[in-house]
């Protein structure tokens, strides 16, 4: 039994060597965000405070599942998701503990944080309509609801309904207009599809450049990336369109956020709170805005030139918690309308 025994010993060794004792000066972060900028921010935090951030990257769903199963012995201290819905879900499953921080309380507007302080947004993204500069007169645009108008037949480009940003958008429409209106809206948009949903947000903008349609629904920071891309084609695509913030006359443009919460079984809540406060500080917020083209949640933070060039806009002040609650319903409506 040479070989199996050898393997067994080896596995134990490997397992043991990888499991270092829990470091007192480190926080374990489960995150769905994976940007180089974030790593830079974590490094800066360590340099400033001596607290190291250990990162586990996966989708929020998987991370929540993992947290749930690990229970009390979870190594996680913090959870970051790229949408509010997942944080709401984590909270409902009792995976988050409330933080106590006046700084957070006072810095972030109410609708961007949880009522019970289980989570707080760290960045915002607006889901906007971009239009072909040459083909569309922005005066013709008004609201998300107007996308179902017959004049946009075969013109609307939007990605698949599997995407969380679309789910949140529909959830906001359900919350604001009711389920029946949301269903009609979904069916109307499907009728106006320029093509079957495919690709990501960037691909929708590129499709405008290619002449497949004149309107696309995308997140703002992807547009920022396109405009600053090293690929000439992407820059062309980014520059061929303008941003339109819908629903300015009524509730405001739909926003979604990435947010953070402290894991229920973390024993380092104080340190974790310190980290969240750091993420919300003016300087770090400005890095999010300039490097990643996201909107800061700290009102004091300045936004980058590019974001300024798109103009300021009115946000839909719907409590984000609602988006989480209505997410499932939104997906069901998508499926029923045949939105792939």
């Amino acid at each position: 039994m040479r070989s199996p025994l050898f393997i067994a010993v080896l596995m134990l060794f490997v397992a043991a060597s990888c499991a270092q004792p829990n470091n007192d000066d480190a926080l374990t972060l489960y995150t769905h965000r994976h940007y180089d900028t974030d790593q830079q921010i974590f490094d800066d935090f360590e340099a400033e405070t001596g607290i190291k951030i250990n990162v586990v990257n996966a989708s929020a769903d998987e991370l929540i599942q993992r947290l749930e199963n690990e229970g009390e012995q979870s190594p996680a201290d913090l959870l970051i998701s790229v949408d509010a819905g997942r944080l709401v879900r984590a909270k409902e499953k009792g995976l988050l503990q409330p933080f106590e921080s006046e700084m957070i309380e006072n810095t972030v507007p109410d609708y961007l944080q949880d009522n019970d302080n289980a989570w707080v947004s760290i960045t915002k993204r607006a889901r906007v309509i971009v239009y072909d500069k040459d083909e569309v007169d922005p005066a013709e645009l008004s609201t998300y609801e107007a996308l179902t108008d017959d004049k946009w037949e075969d013109e609307v480009l939007i990605r698949s309904s599997g995407n969380i940003y679309n789910q949140s958008l529909l959830a906001s429409i359900i919350a604001n207009n009711g389920e029946e209106a949301a269903r009609e809206w979904t069916e109307g948009v499907v009728e106006n599809f320029a093509r079957n949903p495919q690709g990501n947000d960037r691909d929708q903008v590129k499709a405008i450049l290619a002449g497949e349609g004149n309107l696309a629904v995308v997140n703002t920071y992807y547009l920022g990336r396109l405009i600053n891309s090293s690929d000439e084609l992407e820059r062309n695509a980014g520059n061929a369109v303008n941003v339109f913030f819908p629903n300015q006359a009524d509730r405001g443009t739909h926003i979604n956020v990435s947010g953070i919460g402290i894991a229920k079984h973390s024993k380092k809540a104080e340190m974790a709170t310190q980290f969240i406060e750091y993420l919300l500080s003016k300087d770090v917020q400005e890095i999010f805005a300039s490097e990643n083209y996201e909107y800061p949640v700290n009102p004091e933070a300045n936004i980058s030139e590019l974001l300024q060039s798109w103009g300021s806009f009115k946000e839909d002040p719907l409590p984000l918690q609602k988006l989480g609650e209505l997410n499932q319903q939104a997906v069901i409506i998508f499926d029923q309308a045949g939105w792939q």
């Binding site: 490997v14 397992a15 043991a16 004792p21 009390e72 012995q73």
Partner: peptide, 24 residues
Amino acid sequence: GFFVRSFNDWFGLEIGYLIYSGLF
């Protein structure tokens, strides 16, 4: 998760860290 909890309940061993942070 089930195993880790059982270990904890029966033997009082916290092997969670080993399982969740190791390569096993």
